[in-house]
Computed example of a mutant assay.
Amino acid sequence: MKFILAAAALAASSLAMAHNCPNEMKAIDAKLSSNPTLSAADMGKVKALRADGEKFHKAGKHDDSMKALGDAKKLLGI
């Protein structure tokens, strides 16, 4: 019984992560549209991380997606 509950919890958390990737991308896009003051190098990193996050999300690699998007958000200060 405990195994079934653990498996169900894991499946639910994976789905929650999968659904959160688009929200993270929206937050990054909103901040980028406000023309944040970043160096050209940091802006390049943010855009690359944002693109990586979307690529990982589409490939079903949600942990990798959330890491890339989290790193982009840190650079943006959000």
Rank of each mutant, 00 (worst) to 15 (best):
S39R: 04
L75G: 06
V46T: 11
I78V: 15
K55S: 09
L38R: 05
L38S: 02
S34I: 10
S65H: 00
M17S: 00
A68Q: 02
L76T: 06
G70S: 02
A41F: 05
K61D: 06
L75A: 05
K2A: 15
S13C: 11
D64L: 04
G77Q: 02
K45F: 03
D63P: 00
L49F: 14
L10R: 12
K58S: 04
S14M: 03
L69E: 01
K73C: 03
A40C: 10
L32I: 06
I28E: 15
A48K: 13
A68E: 07
A41C: 04
A51C: 07
L15Q: 00
L15T: 01
N23V: 02
A30K: 14
M43D: 13
L10T: 09
S34A: 13
T37Q: 14
K2E: 15
A12K: 05
P22W: 04
E54F: 10
M25A: 15
S14W: 01
K55W: 06
E54K: 13
D63E: 11
D71W: 07
S33V: 11
N23H: 04
L15Y: 00
A9G: 01
A41I: 09
C21K: 07
C21S: 13
K61N: 06
K26E: 13
A40L: 14
A11D: 10
C21I: 09
K45Y: 06
D64M: 08
M43F: 05
K45T: 11
K73E: 10
G60K: 00
M66L: 06
S13N: 07
A59I: 00
A11Q: 11
S65G: 05
A40F: 04
K47A: 07
G44V: 08
A6N: 12
A8V: 11
K67G: 02
G60M: 00
V46A: 07
S34H: 07
I28R: 09
N35Q: 15
S33W: 13
D64A: 06
G60I: 00
L32M: 13
D52Q: 15
K55N: 08
G53Q: 02
A27I: 10
L76R: 01
D52G: 06
A8E: 15
D29E: 15
I4W: 12
S65W: 01
C21W: 02
A68K: 03
M17V: 02
I78G: 01
K73L: 09
H19W: 02
L5K: 14
S39L: 08
F56V: 00
K26D: 14
L10W: 06
A48H: 08
A16R: 03
K26Q: 14
D63S: 08
V46D: 09
L32D: 10
V46W: 09
A72I: 06
R50Y: 12
L15C: 00
A41W: 01
K45M: 11
P36L: 07
M66S: 04
L5I: 15
S39T: 12
L75C: 10
A7F: 08
L75N: 09
A59R: 03
G70Q: 04
D52L: 12
K47P: 05
K58C: 03
A7N: 09
K2Q: 15
A72S: 09
L10Y: 04
A18K: 12
P36T: 08
R50S: 12
S34D: 13
L75M: 07
L76M: 04
A7L: 11
